[in-house]
Design a protein around this nucleic acid. Structure first.
Ligand SMILES: [Zn+2]
Ligand SMILES: [Zn+2]
Ligand SMILES: [Zn+2]
Ligand SMILES: [Zn+2]
Lengths: 149, 149
DNA sequence: AACCAGTATGTTATGTTATTACATTCGTCA
DNA sequence: TGACGAATGTAATAACATAACATACTGGTT
């Protein structure tokens, strides 16, 4: 088992707890572990490259695992990167109001949850009679560390 | 640069009249016109399929044209669809606060501009010391027409 | 005119992301 | 046990996007 964390362990506590309790399959476990050990989002094929060592052989195995993890709310897809990241707010009831900053220099992302954002997006949809089932909010730019360095 | 007025049936003739005023190339014109005639976003390969009749032969020709149009603010990429749509708010000074609703039933999208959204996203980024260069806000769900019908 | 730099274009090949279709294995429960 | 659904394995292919290099057209300079 790989329990080497490059990112803060506390950040992953919640997701880890949910993961230990879940009923999903072995491949989902493996994908989760790799994402948990990464400090930035990973593409399906990057995950596959790592997991070939654990016996995975085809993209579909990774995509299926990711679908399961996304359904359970443990993983988010970052659309503008075609990549996947662990949820860092699994304790939240829903992911309404979730947003991501994406640094174009270092590739790191941060997940933000803001209830005001969720409410505002809800109002905007409502105005149009639109019934939202999922939201994607992604900000590309330069993170604080990369601005200073 | 008033292309967004030409959406609809009679768009093609009038848009053609404006062709010489743009500084972009011929391929950008062609891509623009096809998008203007579509009631929903189109992928690069869908655009290519149409434009083979006008002599285009390779994906790169379409991708380059799209890049130019995006740079000029005339086209948006809808990340969660890997598709492209004309901007319907070209009169706006910037695209901060732009958002899209995406109907999973009919495939249509609507562009929303909301200054409060732009401000809120700005504040969220600021809190993290993040310098945003572009934003992606996409709401998936069911549009009013598809809810009723 | 000859030259140059910058932009737009054409073309081939390749790289990256995601899904379809079908076969097999595994756990659960009547 | 056998039936069933969930998970998995594998091959093939579709869909999306870029790299690398060649050619042509523009406008300004000498
Ligand atoms: Zn989350
Ligand atoms: Zn950074
Ligand atoms: Zn716009
Ligand atoms: Zn609809």
């Amino acid at each position: 088992m790989l329990y080497h964390y490059y990112r803060g362990a506390s950040m992953q506590q919640t997701a880890r707890k949910e993961m230990d309790e879940r009923k999903g399959g072995r491949n989902s476990q493996l994908v989760f572990e790799v994402l948990a050990g990464s400090d930035r989002p990973m593409t399906a094929y990057q995950l596959l490259a790592v997991l070939r060592g654990q016996g995975l052989k085809a993209p579909l195995q990774v995509y299926r695992a990711l679908d399961q993890l996304i359904d359970e709310g443990l993983v988010h897809k970052i659309e503008s990167l075609s990549a996947f990241a662990l949820c860092t707010h699994c304790e939240a009831a829903s992911h309404e109001g979730a947003a991501f900053t994406i640094c174009v220099k270092c590739g790191r992302t941060e997940e933000i949850h803001d209830t005001a954002l969720g409410r505002l997006l809800g109002r905007l949809a409502c105005k149009q009679g639109f019934r939202t089932t999922s939201t994607t909010v992604e900000l590309s730019g330069v993170c604080e560390a990369c601005s200073n360095g």
